[in-house]
Amino acid sequence: MSDLLFSLYGRGHQPSRRVRTVRGWRLALLLLAVAILVGPSGFYILSGGFRSAPATLTVYTYSSLFKYGDDPNATYDAVFGAFERQHGVKVSVKYFTDAGDILPALISEKNAPRADVVVGLTPVMVAKAKAEGVLQPYSPSGIGKVPTELVGELDPDHYATPYEFGLLALDVDGSFLNETVYPGLSSISYQELSKPPLASTLIVENPATSSVGQDFLLSTIVFYDRVLHEDWRSWWSSARGYVKVTPGWDEAFNIFTSADTRYHMVVSFATDPAYSAYFNYTMYQTIIPKHEGKMYGWLEIYGIGVVKGAPNEALAKAFVDWFIGDAVQAQVPLNEWMYPASSTVKLPDVFKYAIDPKDVFPLNGLVPPAELAQSLPQWLEDWQFIMAGSY
């Protein structure tokens, strides 16, 4: 080796230990600079690979989704966290105050969609979403577990898939309003409900700002138009000036349960007795108006759909599959206090206190969702005129 070095450099030009040391420091400084510039991922790049950031699935839904159980954080993890771990992705959930606020957001973003999945669509919302072109059809792998009646009522074209359902009902505080005060209370009719003394103690949600309020308005419209064959406006003209109107369900129920309230009846859900029994809360009487001995109610069906032009379409479809699968469906009864859409999920025992949907005639089965969606703007305008005293 020494002869080779001599022949190349001459004895006076052998590479010294000092020169090799300086070159080593230069290399070390260069590597340090690269590491600072590219960050931790740079070390992975230098080792011959590249680690990309996980995909993010964006979900639009209402603020109370899975928030009414024993441990909302644990439920969130069971629904969204488990999906993240299973697919190696991130889930970003954007909450809206009410389900009715979601559709306007989708429409405003339809030329550049931000959401991948939407959770909380009613049949009327689905019909409007289809007309606006903000959803794409998808038939999930577990659709066979969902009763065909629910699928058909929400959307037979599969632009949305049912994940839960339940009935609207009236909660009554029996301490103030009972059979002694009002004989026949458990069998009241829609007509009685629109007049004093019942109307003066009733709280309803604004149909222009609340999905619950909208469905209650639709129940009065369909009942009067298709069952009684009378003008639905007569109900609201009679109730105007007596009923208390709130922006949404939360505000309505807060007034109903406040100590100094004069309102002792509120539009709510037929599963409320099950909720109260489970948490050992005050048990209110829950009723649905009757006509000729039969209960006529509004069946609320909520669906999940894939946004048209979703940034992560394949992942969105996988999430819909997951959402109507048994793992998520099992979370519905004790966290949403609704009935799971999947027919294979066993109901908790406390649901024996709820009004069984099988015992109620569903008013929304009398009018196609597309017809409701088409007429709703005019109905809302009429309602506002009535409540303002201008009709």
Rank of each mutant, 00 (worst) to 15 (best):
G325V: 04
W337H: 13
G248V: 05
V266Q: 00
V126K: 05
S189F: 10
A82I: 00
V89Q: 08
L57N: 00
P72G: 05
D326F: 08
E109G: 07
A169E: 08
N335M: 13
T209M: 07
S41C: 12
F165H: 15
G88C: 11
D359Y: 01
E336D: 15
S375R: 15
Y60W: 06
F253L: 05
D359V: 05
G389T: 11
S210T: 02
T161S: 09
Y163K: 09
W337Q: 12
A131T: 11
S211I: 12
P104A: 09
I45V: 14
L168H: 12
A277F: 03
F176N: 10
Y190K: 10
P137Q: 12
S276I: 01
A330T: 14
A33K: 02
T21W: 14
T56I: 06
G144W: 14
Q214E: 15
D260R: 13
T21F: 13
W236Q: 09
Y190A: 13
L168K: 10
I107G: 03
F361R: 04
A115S: 05
A112V: 06
Y138H: 06
T209R: 05
T209V: 08
S342R: 01
G293I: 13
R262T: 15
A129R: 03
A129P: 01
V79Y: 03
G293M: 10
I36C: 15
F165C: 04
V367E: 08
G42V: 12
T286A: 07
L29E: 10
P368S: 13
L380Y: 08
Q331W: 06
A370P: 00
G293H: 03
A199P: 02
T61P: 03
V22H: 04
Y76P: 00
P340M: 09
R18C: 02
S2E: 10
A316E: 03
M1W: 07
A259M: 06
W337T: 13
K90M: 07
Y242I: 03
P207R: 05
P377G: 03
T220F: 13
G152E: 14
R23M: 14
F176W: 11
Y62Q: 08
I355N: 00
V204Q: 02
P197C: 03
N206T: 07
G184R: 10
E313C: 05
L334D: 13
R233I: 08
V345S: 05
K244T: 11
V212C: 03
T56P: 07
Y284R: 09
D71G: 06
A314D: 12
W379D: 11
L372C: 02
A274I: 09
I255D: 14
L217Y: 01
P368G: 04
R23T: 13
A316I: 08
Y138W: 04
A82N: 04
N312I: 03
